[in-house]
Design a protein around this nucleic acid. Structure first.
Length: 260
DNA sequence: TTCCTGGCCT
DNA sequence: AGGCCTGGAA
C-alpha cells in the first residue's frame, strides 16, 4: 500500500492509453455534444500528465487524504458533503478523537455529535446521518465499515458520491466520482454539455468511467487532481484560466481567448 | 446571492 | 428525472 497522499502522479499519454478505452470515451463525448471528439479525447489524454504533476505540487494536503482507514475516510466523506474541505479540516481530528469507531458513535448522544459538527452547517442532517452510521455499522457490520458501495449507501443521506469516494480513497478501488467539481471541470475541458444535475446522469457517469485510469494509484491521482483543480483554479465563478496547468487543452479556455 | 467533494422526495 | 432542501462562508 502506497503512503503517497496523491497516488501516482507521474505518467505519460502512452501509459494512459493502455488504461483508458479511448474509443468508448470518444463515443461518450460525442453523445455529450462534444465537437471533434476524437481530437478532444486525444488532447485530453495528452494533458492529463500535466494535471497530475500539478497535483503533486499544488494538491491540498488534508488529513483524510493521508489515511487508508475506511472509518476515517468514510467520516470525512460524510462531513465533506457540500462543505468546504478547509472547514472540515477544522473539526476533523476532534471528531475522530471522540468517535474513533462506529461503536463510539452509536453510543453518543445527539448533543455530542451536534456540538462537533456545528461549524459545518447542515447540522440536523449530519447529526442524524452520523448517528445512523454508528448504529448501523455497529449492529450489522460488527463495528466495521462495510466494503461495498451499496452497503455504504444504507445510512440516511449517505449517497452515491460518499460511498464511491470511500471505496476509491480508502479501499483503492477505482471509482468514477461525479460532483459539481467534476462536472464543471470536465464540462469545460471537453466542451461537454452538462445536464442540470450532472451527479444523477448516467451519461456523465459513463463518460467519467471511461476516462478513469484502471490502475488504483492513477485513478486516485486523477480524481484528486480534478477535485483540487475545481476547487483552486477551475472555480465556478472567475476561473483562473491563466494559472491552469491544462489550459492548452481546454475548450473553455480556448473559446474564451478567441472571444477576447 | 452563490458556492461547497449531494442526496432525498415525488 | 426534476424539484428542493440543508447552513456556514465567501
Amino acid at each position: 500500500m502506497s503512503e503517497l497522499p496523491f497516488g501516482k502522479t507521474r505518467t505519460t499519454p502512452d501509459e494512459l492509453r493502455t488504461q483508458i478505452d479511448t474509443a468508448a470515451a470518444v463515443r461518450r463525448a460525442r453523445e455529450g455534444g462534444v465537437s471533434c471528439p476524437e481530437q478532444r479525447i486525444d488532447r485530453f489524454i495528452q494533458i492529463v500528465p500535466d494535471l497530475l504533476e500539478w497535483l503533486e505540487n499544488h494538491g491540498r494536503e488534508y488529513p483524510w487524504r493521508h489515511s487508508s482507514d475506511a472509518w476515517e475516510v468514510y467520516i470525512a466523506e460524510i462531513l465533506l458533503q457540500r462543505t468546504r474541505g478547509d472547514a472540515v479540516a477544522e473539526v476533523y481530528s476532534a471528531f475522530l478523537d471522540e468517535f474513533p469507531d462506529p461503536d463510539s458513535l452509536a453510543n453518543a448522544t445527539e448533543e455530542d455529535i451536534r456540538q462537533l459538527v456545528e461549524p459545518l452547517g447542515f447540522v440536523n442532517h449530519r447529526t442524524r446521518t452520523l448517528k445512523e452510521v454508528g448504529k448501523l455499522f455497529s449492529a450489522e457490520f460488527d463495528g466495521d465499515v462495510p466494503d461495498s458501495v451499496e452497503e455504504l449507501k444504507r445510512p440516511w443521506r449517505a449517497g452515491e458520491y460518499s460511498a464511491r469516494a470511500c471505496q476509491m480513497f480508502a479501499r483503492g478501488k477505482p471509482m468514477a466520482l461525479v460532483d459539481a467539481n467534476f462536472a464543471r471541470v470536465i464540462g469545460r475541458v471537453l466542451g461537454y454539455e452538462m445536464p442540470v444535475q450532472p451527479h444523477k446522469s448516467s451519461a456523465v457517469y459513463g463518460l467519467l468511467e471511461t476516462l478513469l485510469p484502471t490502475s488504483p494509484e492513477l485513478a486516485r491521482a486523477f480524481n484528486l487532481a480534478i477535485l483540487d483543480l475545481g476547487a483552486l483554479i477551475c472555480t465556478a465563478e472567475h476561473p483562473d484560466c491563466k494559472s491552469c496547468p491544462i489550459n492548452r487543452g481546454c475548450v473553455y479556455y480556448c473559446t474564451r481567448m478567441e472571444d477576447e
